[in-house]
Design a protein around this nucleic acid. Structure first.
Lengths: 87, 87, 87, 87
DNA sequence: CACTGGAAAATGCCGC
DNA sequence: GCGGCATTTTCCAGTG
């Protein structure tokens, strides 16, 4: 069983490495975001409010996407693609 | 006051854009991580266990960092900077 | 619906009282901890270092618990309960 | 210096033990609080709202205490104790 | 679809 | 009084 176990161990290690590498990247971005908020604060903006603005815009976008998806669904139900009348 | 307000608005917009761009990048990484977990699962690994392994390795690292911080504090308490005896 | 509402109100009040009582106890303990730190400081100990020491010991414990959790997961993954082979 | 160091080490250990013991107690209470919230939830109450209720009551209490302190201050400024006209 | 567990955000606290 | 740090609370994804 040693060969199969070795292969599994190799494979496991590869997954762990990949994930940890990505986690580092993610953390780097998260730190960058924190820096931007700090800079905004240094420029007199209220961080809490700024976060709310971002959150609302995100939600709006998500709602818009939902709308688009729904619209697309209707279109398909009517036998039409999106943005074109017919083929 | 229109000029000042304009400047502030410009500045705000810049901060929002920067953050939203970074958020997108972060989400992309997060999705990539999810994919890796999914792939590992497809290769027969137990995701829950895999997560624990990652968590423990993370804790190890965090503990090493705590140790370093403690050492640094000791150094400061002893009136020494980092890597030099005195000035 | 008045009876049901009354019961609910009674019940709610009981929960709130319980929580608030526990919160008071918790705060009392928190204050006691602060006092100990203050006393340690008065005895010449560096509070920041002391906190780090406590934090590291806490992490040690937490890591041991993570290890146990991992072991438990392995056991489950191998189709075994905790401390018995099978039923 | 061994004696002094020993005494310091003993003293340090005592403080650490005291704090850790108190931390355990604190955690026990915190767990109890969580349990109460869980029980409330099981009884159909919305935990998030319940938390808000507790928070508001806490704030009210703190405001009332501030009022009392202010009143006491006025009383003292007028040469009067609290709840009595004079001695 | 509710529940658990893990990430993000908000709050409070401490020292400078 | 403010900025960093620790705690607490909220949010979200995965799971059964």
């Amino acid at each position: 069983m040693s060969d199969a176990a070795d292969v599994a161990a190799e494979s496991l290690k590869a997954f762990v490495d990949q994930i940890e590498k990505l986690e580092v990247e993610k953390q780097t971005i998260a730190d960058a975001i924190k820096d931007v908020y700090a800079e905004a604060k240094a420029n007199g903006f209220d961080v809490k409010i700024l976060r709310r603005v971002i959150a609302i815009r995100k939600q709006d976008k998500s709602e818009r996407e939902e709308m688009d998806a729904l619209l697309e669904l209707y279109m398909q139900a009517l036998g039409m693609g999106y943005g074109r009348v017919e083929e």
